[in-house]
Amino acid sequence: MEKRSRKIIPFFVLLLGILAISTASILIRFAQREVPSLVIAAYRLGIATLLLFPLGWKRKYTANLKGKDWVWLVLGGFFLACHFAAWITSLEHTTVASSVVLVTTTPLWVALLSPLVLHEKPGSSVWLGLIMAMVGSIWIGLQGNCAFEGMSISCLMGDSIQKRDYLVGNLLALSGALFASGYMLVGRYFRPRISLLPYITIVYGVAAVCLLGFVGIAHQRLWPYSGRALIILVALAIGPQILGHSAFNWALRFLPASFVTLGLLGEPVGTMILASLFLAELPTWGEIVGGGIILAGIYLASRSTLSTPN
């Protein structure tokens, strides 16, 4: 009984992480009124690193790290930076529906790569839960952007979106999913070997430096912005990044990467709830159905993972 209780704790931490990252879309929407997307990402990781640095960067934490370990840490930070840069930028070129459909393939890539990279083979229940959650996420992405007429479906693009931009946006969204899966796989490989605080401090710091480089390449300004925007950026760093992403990184020490990444699909459900509360955007029946499918898939996979002996 005690062993089962210890196994349940990572699930609760993962749930808290889902709730925290669900606030990201709301905060980003407010910040984008005056701050470019790449700058938002750079501030998010930069502020998070500065807040974590006093506790997370101590010589005793990194004394035993070897050259190969640093390569993995830098690689994880680079993947995280590329994920944010590619996914957020994709929203400027393609429709929200297309971006959501492609970026929610992250758990699929993790499940496919885990046997090769980590030698973790997801069970049949995890695969079924993964498919259900992805179907629900895709269904949510289609709502409001596609018209359902009988057995047919038609999705429309705005007149301002050119075919070339649409293709670029889709490729960026898919790249964001691939980079996110790389970030999760690196975390699953490395987390059992290092404590949470030094790990996230280093990885977030590397991601922040990379994003600052991306901002420079894009010739976007880092300053000045209003006090309101800065407060939102700080909230984005504390909530979705430090609390949300760190919860996922903590869970990677105890749960398979394929399942932890599956939890990311719970974000659209939390975002729908928060949007209805703070943006007066009530979910449609289609979105509610999609959210129910996602939760059912996560529940199915969690039961399988919880019952698997360590």
Rank of each mutant, 00 (worst) to 15 (best):
L185V: 07
L185Y: 05
R188L: 08
Y189N: 09
Y189L: 08
Y189E: 09
Y189M: 06
Y189W: 09
F190R: 09
R191K: 07
R191T: 07
R191N: 08
P192C: 09
P192M: 10
P192E: 08
I194F: 06
I194V: 14
L196A: 06
L197P: 02
P198S: 08
P198E: 12
P198F: 11
I200C: 06
T201G: 07
T201C: 11
I202V: 15
V203S: 01
V203Q: 04
V203E: 00
Y204M: 12
G205I: 06
V206H: 01
V206Q: 00
A207N: 01
C210E: 00
L211D: 00
L212M: 15
L212F: 14
L212Y: 12
G213D: 08
V215I: 08
G216R: 08
I217K: 07
A218Y: 10
H219C: 03
Q220N: 02
Q220H: 06
R221V: 07
L222P: 00
L222H: 00
W223D: 04
P224I: 12
S226I: 02
S226G: 13
G227K: 11
R228D: 13
L230V: 10
I231R: 11
I232L: 15
I232N: 00
I232M: 15
L233G: 07
V234P: 00
V234H: 03
A235V: 03
L236C: 04
A237N: 05
I238H: 05
G239A: 12
G239M: 11
G239K: 03
P240S: 09
P240R: 05
P240L: 08
I242M: 14
L243N: 11
L243T: 12
H245F: 11
H245Y: 06
H245V: 10
H245M: 10
S246K: 03
F248E: 01
N249K: 03
W250S: 02
W250Q: 04
W250K: 03
A251L: 05
L252G: 05
L252C: 12
L252K: 09
R253K: 15
F254P: 00
L255W: 05
L255G: 01
A257T: 06
A257Q: 04
S258F: 09
S258G: 10
F259K: 01
F259Q: 05
V260I: 10
V260R: 03
V260F: 06
T261A: 15
L262R: 05
G263K: 01
L264Q: 03
L264V: 15
L264D: 02
G266A: 12
G266D: 08
G266P: 09
P268Y: 02
V269E: 04
V269I: 11
G270R: 00
M272G: 09
I273C: 02
I273D: 00
I273E: 02
L274M: 12
L274Q: 03
L274Y: 07
L274E: 06
A275F: 10
S276N: 13
L277A: 14
L277S: 06
F278N: 03
F278T: 11
L279K: 04
A280G: 07
A280W: 11
A280K: 12
E281D: 15
L282M: 15
L282N: 12
P283F: 13
P283H: 11
P283G: 11
T284D: 14
W285P: 02
W285N: 13
G286N: 10
E287F: 02
E287V: 14
I288V: 15
I288D: 01
V289R: 05
V289H: 03
